[in-house]
Simulated scan of single mutants.
Amino acid sequence: MIEDLKNERRPAPRSSSRLGTIGWFVARIVAAFLFLSAAQVVIYKFVPVPITLTMLMDDHPVTKEWTALSDIDRDMVAAVISGEDGKFCQHKGFDQEAMMQAFKRNQKGGRIRGGSTISQQTAKNVFLWQGGGYLRKGLEAWYTVLIETIWGKRRIMEVYLNVAETGIGTYGVEAGAQRYYGKSARKLSAVEAARIAAVLPLPKQREVNGAGGFTRRHGNAIARRVNVVKNGALDSCVYK
């Protein structure tokens, strides 16, 4: 019995103590991140996004002008849905079918295509950095769930149209409309909106004015689908 009492009084092994401390520390970090990320999303539900990491890391002077969705032509919304995410109003942040199709195309080689939704792109553009990697993708998924839950589709679209890069050093469709057409985004035609939407995947490499090749064909295809989006109520989650 004396031996048993001695064993009970022995301190826990140091390795177990260290693991417990590390686990507690990691749990605190994770909890802090979850709280802060949710707070960020709640704030940006009401406040215009002032700056993003992409803008800060841009080597060119940045031009941007925050514009309310009500001051952006509906054709611009239809154009980005047509060009970037045809199921924007149907999915809850992720389009698994589009992601699988993109994966199969990329396996065949050639031009790399993504399967990201507008929600995912908005999460990346606002809260994260450009590029790949499992960490970035994991964080992107988390922020996508948050903005879908807290913001809703209309706010996601509004933020996307204000932070998406529309040309070298140009962010948002208002700045893009002023740069390329000398007019407000409120007055864009379907063709003009489609041309801006066509450069969104590669804004530093594609031209809006005088575009040729794939960009021109892609822009024309988007323009033809603008009325399809509106008449088919594919933008209904934005204009309730």
Rank of each mutant, 00 (worst) to 15 (best):
V199C: 08
A12R: 09
M1N: 13
S17I: 15
V49D: 15
K204V: 06
E3P: 00
R136S: 02
G213M: 02
R155Q: 05
F103A: 08
N162S: 07
G138A: 05
D73F: 01
G132S: 07
Y239F: 05
A194K: 10
G132I: 02
K187Q: 11
R154F: 03
W151S: 14
G83E: 04
Y134E: 07
E207R: 14
A68S: 15
G219L: 01
T54N: 13
E97I: 05
E65L: 13
K64V: 09
G133W: 08
M57K: 11
D85H: 04
V80T: 14
V41A: 05
A141D: 07
M57F: 10
L56Q: 13
F46A: 08
A68L: 12
P201T: 03
T117N: 04
D75P: 00
Q130T: 13
Q107C: 03
A98M: 13
P61Y: 01
T166P: 01
G176S: 07
T21A: 06
V126K: 10
S70G: 11
L53A: 14
R28T: 03
G152A: 11
I22A: 12
Q96M: 14
G131L: 09
Q178D: 11
L19V: 14
K45T: 03
R224F: 01
A31N: 00
G176T: 06
A102E: 15
S37Y: 10
A190T: 00
D71C: 05
G210F: 08
M157Q: 09
S236T: 05
G172Q: 07
S236Q: 10
L200A: 02
A98H: 03
I72C: 04
M57G: 08
Y171M: 04
D75S: 15
A39W: 15
S82P: 03
S15Q: 04
A32E: 00
R105K: 15
G115N: 06
F88C: 08
I51N: 13
G152T: 09
G93Q: 04
I81D: 03
V145L: 14
L53P: 10
F214E: 15
H60V: 13
L56T: 06
